[in-house]
Amino acid sequence: MTLRQTTEPGATTAPGSARARLTRFAAALSSPSSERRWLLWPPLAFFAVMLGIPMVALVVTALSGEGNAFAEIFQLNVFVSALIRTFVLALIVTAVTVVFGLIYSVGLAVAPSWLKWILLAWLFLSLWTSVMVRSFGWMLIELPLGALHWFLSLIGLSEVKIELYQTTVGMYPAMIAVMLPFAVLPVVAAIESLDREQLRAAVVYGAGPLLAIRTVVLPVVRPALISGGVLVFVMSLGFYVTPLLLGGPSNMTISGLINTQLNTANRPDLAAAMSIVLVAATMLIYLVADRLFKVSERWG
């Protein structure tokens, strides 16, 4: 089999290739001049100010309470349980979303073309509408006399008593649906980039579906699944709107609890301490995942 000789736009370049060399030259060209200073410093300064000052403000606030806010929050049952709940929630949502995302992306690739357009339209419909609007939709489905109730009575199951609204179970479908596009997009891109000749070769040499998927499809798709999963997990940790609308007070996530501490309990020091814990945990997970799986390199 001959290797493809053209450098496709955006293709990852081997370090020794002509394109990589040119890229290096092009970068080195600007090294002595002022251009990097002019282009890089303004955004970096903006980051430093707009990320640095809020973080300093959080630390100052957390330390300004009467006691040690950090020690206090870890003794609070609501905090510890919200922390655990948020992590479990994020884990489950991520796992289901990644599996669904893989199925949906493969479905997009193999469906007949009329159905492909519908699946694609549904994907972009949810990608381009706001999380809040989509959560409203789920509320309308799950409300006691909502769409699901109507549907069940339509098929003669009106006897079935459903209690989804403001329950843990009711929260999951909405959150999975909200996060799904983020898991689908990278996998779709990976499946697009599959070498079609390799796929045909696998079929020609008589590989069964499982063998072909393991040897040809999975190696290409795995990094995309991981980067989509990392993104979904990290975003799920910060979940606020959807649990607020669908989970109710008994299912508070960390974000919800922070809001309560600040606005209801009037304990800004605790809210700040919790925020710091949440930011630190999220950033740590993201940075470690980025280091391990090169997530951000896949995003441009």
């Binding site: 959080l58 975003m235 600040l262 949440l278 993201y286």
Partner: peptide, 17 residues
């Protein structure tokens, strides 16, 4: 990085400013 920033925590920080 900001994609991964938990919005509520960030908002609380900005709120303090």
């Amino acid at each position: 990085l900001p994609i991964a920033l938990p919005p509520v925590a960030y908002a609380v920080g900005l709120h303090r400013i």
